[in-house]
Design a protein around this nucleic acid. Structure first.
Length: 1093
RNA sequence: GCCCAGAUGGCGGAAUUGGUAGACGCGCCAGACUCAAAAUCUGGUAUUGGCAACAAUGUGCAGGUUCGAUUCCUGUUCUGGGCACCA
C-alpha cells in the first residue's frame, strides 16, 4: 500500500468542505485566536508560488492554535478593486467586474488545491456593494468627524459646530496644513491666523461655514499635485514616470494641481507613533513606520528678505481680493475677503509700511507689533495689542470721500473697544521717519498709563493676527537651530510660492528654465538624483541672528511637501548642503572648528561653536535650546514639532474603486444620507478618463446630473478595515456588530509582506483608531502581532538577441555583439541551458527561424533574481507542483525553503526531498508488500526520547514561526524512527498530531487509519515530558585557545575541579600544552570547555 | 539620495542567550538491489595539503572588543524591499 497523495488529498478536501470543519462561530466558550493573511489582489496572472508562503505559514499557525484548544478565526477574501483590472479593461474592453470575478475564481481554485483551513463562509470582496457600502459608511464617519487636540481623539463634527457657536475657534485653531491644501490659484492658506469668534461664525454664510468645517474634517477635500500625463489624460504613479515621460507610451508628464480627497492622518501622527510600543512587531517594521511618520523637533525660523519683493499689482489688493471672492458663492462674505486682503497687504506692503515695519518690528519699541492684523472685522496696518494702540499708514486712495467715511467709522468703532488709533501719511513715514517713531513712542507711553484705568475689549493672549506669519520673508524648518550661524545659503523648493516674487530680473530666465525642468521630474527622481543642480534666484535673505545676507537658491532636492518647503543650508554640518556649496562655489562658514576638515560635512552635535556670535564657546547640543529661546523672545521663529508624514491622498481619478458618497451642491460637499448606501458604482461602457483629469465617472451623464463626486477611492480604502468585516461578514445593518468585534478583538497574528510596511499598515491603524474614538469598536490597534513574510523572488532567464538580426547569442559570448536582453520563460530553460526547440515554439513560434550562437554546443542563458512577475516570465505556478507532488509536499517544501521572514529566490529542485520524507513517513505505517505494519506495542525509552525531543522542538519552532527548522525536526524524527524500526501506534499517533498543521491531509488520513474517528484537528496536542529526554552525561567540546581540538564525556553534575582534572588528563590537551600548565580553564556547563594556554 | 533588511559549502539553509560552524534537504560521488531503468537502501561530500592520523584556512570585505565572534562594535561593498496614484 503506497502513499497515494492525490486520492488522499482530494478525499479530505471534499470531506472538510462537506462537514464544514473550518466554520467558526462568534460565541464559543473557548479562548479566541485570530489569524489573518493580508488578502490578495486577484491579479490576472493567478497565484504564483510566492503567494502561498504566508498563507501556508498562517494556516500552520491557525491549525496549531486550534489543536491547542483555541477558537480560531482564519478567514480569507479579496482586495478586488484596483488599477490593473481597469487597465485591462481599457486594453481589452472587458469590464473590471467580469475580469475580477474570473480572477477570483482562479485564485479560489488554486487556494483550494493547497488545503487551507479558511472559513470560506466569511469570504469578503472589497468590490462587492454589500462590502463597500460599509467602506463608504466609514468614509462618512471620517467626513463627519474632526480631531480634537484637547481630548486627543476623533469626535463628531456636530460637537465642533457647537464649540464654534459658543466660543469660535480660538481654542481649536485650524490644524496645520501641508502643501495639499492650496487654493486653486496656488496660494497656500495660512490657517493658523484664521481665528474667528462665535459671532463671526454665526455671521458666516453656509458656504463659508462649510469651507471652514472642511479644514477640520478627518476626510476632507483639498488640492494636491499629481503627475499628470496629458496624452494619456490620466494621473500617473511616481514609478510610472521615467525621466519626465510616462512609462507607457513615453509621453511627457508634468505636475498638475487637482482637487483631491485626503485623510487627515497627520492628526494621528503622535498616536500612531506612540502606540507602536504596544505592538509585537519587528523592530525593523516599527522603525520604518517611525521614519515614515518622521517626528522631529526643532524650530521654524523666519529669514526676512534683503530686498523685499515688489508688489505684484500697481494698486494693491483690490483686483486680487475680488478674484479670490469668486471662490465663494456669496458676495458678502466679508470674513474670507478680509482674510485674503490682509494676507495680500502683508505680502505686498507699501514702501511706507515697510519702512515703518523695519523700524518697529522685533520689539524695537518694547512692544510686540503685529502687521495687517484683523480686529473685529477690520484689518489695521499695525496693532500694538498690549498697549491697545493701532497705527494706520495712509496712502493716496484714502483721500477719496467714501474712504474717509469708512475710516472715521473705523476709528470710532475701535475706540469703543478701548483701542486708540493714530494715523500717518506715507509721506510722513518716508520722509520724517524719526519723528513718526518718536510720536509712536509717545503714544505707547500714553496708552500704558491709560491702560491701568481704561476698560475695553479684552483681547485674548493667544489671538494671532494676520501679520504674524508670512512677513515678507522665508520661513524654514530646521532640526538644528544651533547651526544658525553656519547658514551660508538658503534653498527653496522650485515650486515654492515665493520663487516667482523674489527672483531678480537678471535671474528670471535661468530660474524659469530650472523650474520647468523640475516640473517634469517625479519626486522619486528628484530625491534619487546624484547630480547636483540648482539655480540662484538673485535674492538675498537676512539671517535673523547674525544679520548676514545670504543668497537664496532653488534646487530640486528641497521638496515642497516637507516642512516649509525651504531650508537653511549649513554646509559644514550637512553633507548635501556641503556638496551643493562646493558645486556652486559658495563659501563655507566653519562653526565647528576642527570637526570640519574642509573636505566633508560633519553633522556632529558635540562641537564647541565658533564663528557663532553670542553662541561661541557653547556645545552645539546645548545651543539649540538657547537659539530657540532667542527666536521666540525676538519673534523671529518658534519652537516646532514637525512630521514628515503628509495627509493621505484618498481619491483617484479612476473607475474601478468605491464611489464617494458625496454630493456637490454650489461647490459644497454634502454627505449622502447613510440610508442611501451603498452608492453603487455605475456600469460603464468606456473606461476612458473624464475631462480635465477627472475620473471616468465624469463621463456618465446620469452621474454628473446628480452632482455626485466623480473621483473614486484608492486601493487601500477597502483594505483599511477588512479585518473587522470578517468578524461579522453578513451584517446588513452595521459594518460589524459590536458583540462580534468585542469577542474577536485584535488580530492576534497578521501575516504579510514588508512591502506594506508604511501604506496599508498605517492606514488601517488610523481607521482603527478613528473607529475606536467614535465608539464603534473597543480596541485601537488592529494587528497585535505582525509576521512579515519574505518575498519569493523569481529567478529570471535571459536570451540575448543580436541587434537587427533574428539570432541569439549565448551569454558567455554576448560581449562580442551588440545585443538586446530579452526575458525568456523559465519553464523552457533547464537550469541555465535553453531548450532551443521549446524556445522556437515559444510565443506562437515568434522565434521559429532564429539562429543560435552556442558555446560548447549549448545555449546558456543569463540569470537575474528579481520580483516574480508574469511580465518577466519567471513565475512558477503552484498548481503544477501540487499536481505532481501533492499539497502536503508543497506546503512543507515552501516552509522548508528557509525562514518565512526571509526573501529568497524560488527553486523547485529541492521539493523531491520533502516528498521523499512524506513517503518515508508513510512507510512507518504501511509497507508496500505487507500493508499495515503499525502495532500496539509499548514504546521503548529510546523511541520515547525521539518523540519527546520532537514534541519540544516542533512546538518551540512553531511558536517562534521557525517553520523551516520544524520541518527539519520532523525529518530527523522520521529518520530516527525508521532506524529504530519503530511502528508503534502510541509514538506515531503523537507524531501525526504534531504534523497536522504542516501536512494536514496525510495526517488526517493516517489518523483515521489508526482507528480514530473525528478530525485530527480535534485531537489533543502532545505534551512534552522532560523525563523522557534527560541524559546523565554529555559530550563536551574541548578547545585550546578557543579552537576545538577534541571532546570528552563528563557527568552533568561534575564540578569545576573534576572537569579540570579530566581535561588535563586528556592526551590531546597534553599534546597542546607541551608540558606547560594552562593559564585558565573555562568550563561553561552544557556548552563547552576552553583551555587557555 | 533616504529608510529597512540580508550576505554562511556546488545550492536552499542550521547554529534560539558570545561557546563544537555547516543540522536538515537538494545536488554530486561511490556502492547495494535490477537484464536495465525508476523507486528504495548504504556510505561519502567546506577548501587546501596528506594514504592516514592530522594540520592550515574558512560565515561578503577591512579593522576592533573577548579566553572564545556567523553572533557584539566601527567602517565598507554588494543584493533585495520601500519611498506616498501598483497592490
Amino acid at each position: 500500500m503506497e502513499y497515494n497523495f492525490r486520492a488522499i488529498e482530494q478525499h479530505w478536501q471534499q470531506e472538510w468542505k462537506a462537514k464544514e470543519i473550518y466554520k467558526v462561530s462568534n460565541d464559543a466558550s473557548k479562548p479566541k485566536y485570530y489569524v489573518l493573511d493580508m488578502f490578495p489582489y486577484p491579479s490576472g496572472a493567478g497565484l504564483h508560488v510566492g503567494h502561498p508562503l504566508g498563507y501556508i505559514a498562517s494556516d500552520i499557525f491557525a491549525r496549531y492554535k486550534r489543536l491547542k484548544g483555541f477558537n480560531v478565526l482564519h478567514p480569507m477574501g479579496y482586495d478586488a478593486f484596483g488599477l490593473p483590472a481597469e487597465q485591462y479593461a481599457i486594453d481589452h474592453g472587458i469590464h473590471p467586474a467580469v475580469s475580477t470575478e474570473n480572477n477570483i475564481n482562479t485564485f479560489r481554485k488554486q487556494l483550494d488545491n493547497i488545503g487551507f483551513c479558511y472559513d470560506w463562509s466569511r469570504e469578503i470582496r472589497t468590490s462587492d456593494p454589500s462590502y463597500y457600502k460599509w467602506t463608504q459608511w466609514i468614509f462618512l464617519q471620517l467626513f463627519k468627524s474632526w480631531y480634537n487636540r484637547d481630548t486627543k481623539k476623533a469626535e463628531s463634527i456636530d460637537g465642533l459646530i457647537k464649540i464654534f457657536e459658543t466660543e469660535g475657534n480660538i481654542n481649536h485653531p485650524i490644524p496645520d496644513q501641508k502643501s495639499q491644501t492650496r487654493l486653486p490659484d496656488g496660494q497656500v492658506r495660512n490657517h493658523k491666523s484664521e481665528i474667528f469668534s462665535s459671532s463671526d461664525w454665526k455671521g458666516f454664510d453656509e458656504a463659508t461655514q462649510q469651507f471652514i468645517l472642511m479644514e477640520y474634517r478627518l476626510a476632507y477635500c483639498g488640492y494636491g499635485e499629481v503627475n499628470w500625463c496629458e496624452a494619456l489624460g490620466t494621473v500617473l504613479a511616481n514609478d510610472e514616470v521615467i525621466n519626465g515621460v510616462s512609462e507607457r507610451g513615453g509621453y511627457p508628464v508634468v505636475k498638475k494641481k487637482l482637487r483631491q480627497w485626503y485623510l487627515r492622518i497627520t492628526e494621528y501622527a503622535d498616536r500612531l507613533q506612540g502606540d507602536l510600543n504596544t505592538l509585537e512587531w519587528s523592530d525593523a517594521m516599527k522603525e520604518m513606520q517611525t521614519n515614515w511618520i518622521g517626528k522631529s523637533s526643532g524650530a521654524e525660523i523666519e529669514f526676512s528678505l534683503a530686498s523685499p519683493p515688489s508688489p505684484l499689482l500697481p494698486e494693491r489688493g483690490d483686483a486680487k481680493v475680488a478674484e479670490s471672492g469668486r471662490l465663494f458663492k456669496t458676495a458678502d462674505a466679508n470674513w474670507h475677503i478680509l482674510k485674503e486682503y490682509g494676507r495680500l497687504n502683508r505680502k505686498n506692503p507699501t514702501a511706507a509700511e515697510d519702512v515703518l515695519w523695519q523700524n518697529i518690528r522685533n520689539n524695537k519699541l518694547g512692544v510686540k507689533v503685529r502687521r495687517q492684523h484683523a480686529i473685529q472685522g477690520y484689518i489695521v496696518d499695525f496693532a500694538l495689542l498690549e498697549v491697545k494702540l493701532v497705527i494706520e499708514v495712509d496712502g493716496e486712495y484714502h483721500n477719496e470721500e467714501q474712504q474717509k467715511i469708512y475710516d472715521e467709522a473705523r476709528t470710532g468703532y475701535l475706540k469703543e473697544f478701548g483701542l486708540n488709533l493714530i494715523r500717518f501719511s506715507n509721506d510722513d513715514v518716508l520722509n520724517n521717519t524719526k519723528t513718526v517713531i518718536e510720536k509712536i513712542k509717545e503714544e505707547i507711553q500714553v496708552q500704558k498709563k491709560n491702560s491701568r484705568t481704561s476698560e475695553g475689549l479684552p483681547l485674548p493672549e493667544e489671538e494671532k493676527g494676520l501679520g504674524d506669519e508670512a512677513k515678507a520673508g522665508v520661513r524654514v524648518y530646521t532640526t538644528r537651530p544651533d547651526t544658525i550661524f553656519g547658514v551660508d545659503f538658503m534653498v527653496l523648493a522650485p515650486e515654492h510660492e515665493l520663487v516667482g516674487q523674489i527672483t531678480t530680473a537678471e535671474q528670471k530666465a535661468a530660474v524659469d528654465e530650472y523650474v520647468a525642468y523640475v516640473k517634469s521630474r517625479s519626486e522619486r527622481e528628484r530625491m534619487a538624483e546624484k547630480k547636483i543642480s540648482g539655480c540662484f534666484t538673485g535674492a538675498y535673505a537676512i539671517n535673523p541672528l547674525s544679520g548676514k545676507h545670504i543668497p537664496v537658491w532653488i534646487s530640486e532636492y528641497v521638496l515642497a511637501g516637507y516642512g516649509t518647503g525651504a531650508i537653511m543650508a549649513v554646509p559644514c554640518g550637512d553633507e548635501r548642503d556641503h556638496k551643493f556649496a562646493k558645486h556652486f562655489n559658495i563659501p563655507v562658514t566653519n562653526i565647528i572648528g576642527d570637526y570640519y576638515n574642509g573636505e566633508e560635512a560633519n553633522p556632529t552635535k558635540e562641537a564647541v561653536l565658533q564663528n557663532s556670535g553670542f553662541l561661541d564657546g557653547m556645545v552645539m547640543k546645548d545651543a539649540a535650546e538657547v537659539v530657540i529661546q532667542w527666536l521666540e523672545d525676538n519673534e523671529e521663529g518658534v519652537r516646532k514639532v514637525n512630521y514628515k508624514m503628509r495627509d493621505a491622498a484618498f481619491s483617484r481619478q479612476r473607475y474601478w474603486g468605491e464611489p464617494f458618497p458625496i454630493i456637490w451642491k454650489d461647490g459644497i460637499a454634502y454627505p449622502l444620507d447613510e440610508k442611501d448606501l451603498p452608492l453603487e458604482l455605475p456600469h460603464v461602457e468606456s473606461y476612458k478618463p473624464g475631462p480635465e483629469g477627472e475620473g471616468p465617472l465624469a463621463n456618465i451623464e446620469a452621474w454628473t446630473a446628480r452632482h455626485l463626486e466623480t473621483n473614486t477611492m484608492p486601493g487601500y480604502a477597502g483594505s483599511s478595515w477588512y479585518f473587522l468585516r470578517y468578524m461579522d461578514p453578513h451584517n446588513d445593518t452595521v459594518f460589524c456588530d459590536r458583540k462580534g468585534s468585542d469577542y474577536w478583538n485584535q488580530v492576534d497574528l497578521y501575516i504579510g509582506g514588508t512591502e506594506h510596511a508604511v501604506g496599508h499598515l498605517l492606514y488601517s491603524r488610523m481607521w482603527t483608531k478613528a473607529l475606536y474614538d467614535l465608539g464603534h469598536i473597543g480596541f485601537n490597534e488592529p494587528f497585535k502581532k505582525l509576521l512579515n513574510q519574505g518575498m519569493i523572488q523569481g529567478s529570471s532567464r535571459f536570451v540575448y538577441r543580436v541587434r537587427g538580426k533574428n539570432g541569439f547569442v549565448s551569454v558567455g559570448l554576448k560581449d562580442q555583439y551588440v545585443t538586446d536582453q530579452i526575458h525568456v520563460d523559465v519553464n523552457i530553460v533547464d537550469g541555465v541551458e535553453l531548450d532551443i526547440e521549446a524556445f522556437k515554439n515559444w510565443r506562437n513560434g515568434e522565434y521559429a527561424n532564429a539562429e543560435f550562437i552556442l558555446e560548447d554546443g549549448k545555449y546558456i542563458c543569463g540569470t537575474e533574481v528579481e520580483k516574480m512577475s508574469k511580465s518577466k516570465f519567471n513565475t512558477v505556478n503552484p498548481d503544477e507542483l501540487v499536481l505532481k507532488y501533492g499539497a502536503d509536499t508543497f506546503r512543507m517544501y515552501e516552509m522548508f525553503l528557509g525562514p518565512v521572514e526571509q526573501s529568497k529566490p524560488w527553486d523547485t529542485k529541492g521539493i523531491e526531498g520533502v516528498h521523499r520524507f512524506l513517503k518515508k513517513l508513510w512507510r512507518l505505517f504501511y509497507d508496500e508488500q505487507k500493508g499495515k505494519i503499525w502495532t500496539d506495542q509499548q514504546p521503548t525509552a529510546e523511541e520515547l526520547k525521539v518523540l519527546h525531543r520532537t514534541i519540544k522542538k516542533v512546538e518551540e519552532d512553531t511558536e517562534r514561526f521557525s517553520f523551516n527548522t520544524a520541518v527539519s525536526a520532523f525529518m530527523i524524527a522520521v529518520n530516527e524512527l525508521s532506524d529504530l524500526q519503530c511502528h508503534k501506534k502510541t509514538i506515531l499517533e503523537s507524531i501525526l498530531v504534531l504534523l497536522t498543521p504542516y501536512a494536514p491531509h496525510i495526517a488526517e488520513e493516517l489518523w483515521q487509519r489508526l482507528g480514530n474517528s473525528g478530525s485530527v484537528l480535534d485531537a489533543t496536542y502532545p505534551i512534552f515530558e522532560e523525563k523522557y529526554v534527560i541524559e546523565s552525561s554529555k559530550s563536551y567540546p574541548v578547545a585550546i585557545n578557543g579552537k576545538t581540538r577534541t571532546d570528552i564525556t563528563i557527568a552533568l553534575d561534575a564540578t569545576q575541579q573534576q572537569v579540570e582534572a579530566l581535561v588535563l588528563a586528556n592526551a590531546v590537551v597534553q599534546k597542546w600544552l607541551e608540558g606547560k600548565s594552562p593559564k585558565k580553564i573555562i568550563y561553561v556547563k552544557n556548552r563547552m570547555i576552553n583551555v587557555v594556554v
